[in-house]
Simulated assay, not measured.
Amino acid sequence: MFLPPVIFVALAALFFFGVGRDDRDALPSMLIGKPAPTLAVEPLDGQIFGDAVLRQGEVTLVNFWASWCGPCRDEHPLLAALAGDGVAIYGVNYKDKPANALRFLDQLGNPYEGIAADPAGRTAIEWGVYGVPETFVLDGQGRVVLRHPGPLTQAVIETSLRPAMERAAAAE
């Protein structure tokens, strides 16, 4: 007789405490500390960057994004601000139509030093991308220091991204 209410309270408690958790770390990257995978990307409007640019001796961000991605639109002003601060950001457009991707950049501005397209999503698979947006911090040797799944926020930039960039710069 008392068992159903006890089970209900236990499940309600699990749900209540589980909803408030930030499980971004539950999807860890196997790439941390390892060289970034090879880029198998295509040009986007004649622009492309390759593996050498990711190993040019400076801390670099690689941002996977798409025009159809609402959170990508939300984080875009923060990427522009980082670029304005001199952060090297390279964008990989994920499973998108080139015309839509270029329209997105025309409307919101282009914070990327280089952009490329991953129309089939093969590069994203190699990088362990679960969905867009995702941002990676690479050290000057092209090793992955941080993977951040989901949109960047000011809090994420201050508590996670910038400290990872500082660690990456100190390791060089």
Rank of each mutant, 00 (worst) to 15 (best):
L3H: 11
P5R: 13
P5F: 08
P5T: 13
V6Q: 04
V6I: 15
I7G: 05
F8T: 09
L11T: 12
A12R: 04
L14D: 04
F15I: 15
F16A: 14
F17C: 05
F17S: 10
V19C: 08
G20W: 02
R21I: 15
A26T: 13
L31W: 05
G33C: 03
K34M: 14
P35K: 00
P35V: 07
A36N: 06
A36W: 00
P37G: 00
P37F: 13
A40K: 10
P43I: 04
P43H: 06
L44D: 08
I48Y: 10
F49C: 00
D51S: 12
A52D: 14
V53I: 08
L61Q: 06
F64N: 04
S67E: 00
W68T: 01
W68G: 00
W68Y: 12
G70T: 15
G70R: 14
G70Q: 14
P71R: 07
E75N: 11
H76I: 01
L78G: 01
A80Q: 14
A81E: 15
L82N: 00
G84V: 05
D85P: 08
V87W: 09
I89L: 09
I89N: 01
Y90W: 04
G91Q: 09
Y94K: 02
D96L: 05
D96T: 01
D96P: 01
A99C: 05
A99K: 10
A101E: 08
L102V: 05
L108K: 11
G109P: 06
Y112W: 13
Y112F: 15
Y112D: 02
G114Q: 05
G114D: 02
G114Y: 02
I115W: 00
I115L: 05
P119W: 07
T123W: 00
V129H: 00
V129M: 05
V129C: 01
Y130C: 06
Y130N: 14
E134G: 03
F136G: 03
G140Q: 09
Q141C: 07
G142D: 03
G142F: 03
R143W: 12
V145M: 08
L146T: 08
P149I: 10
G150W: 03
P151C: 11
L152Y: 09
T153M: 03
T153P: 10
Q154S: 12
A155M: 13
A155G: 12
V156E: 06
E158P: 00
S160K: 15
L161D: 12
R167K: 14
R167L: 12
R167H: 07
A170S: 14
E172P: 07
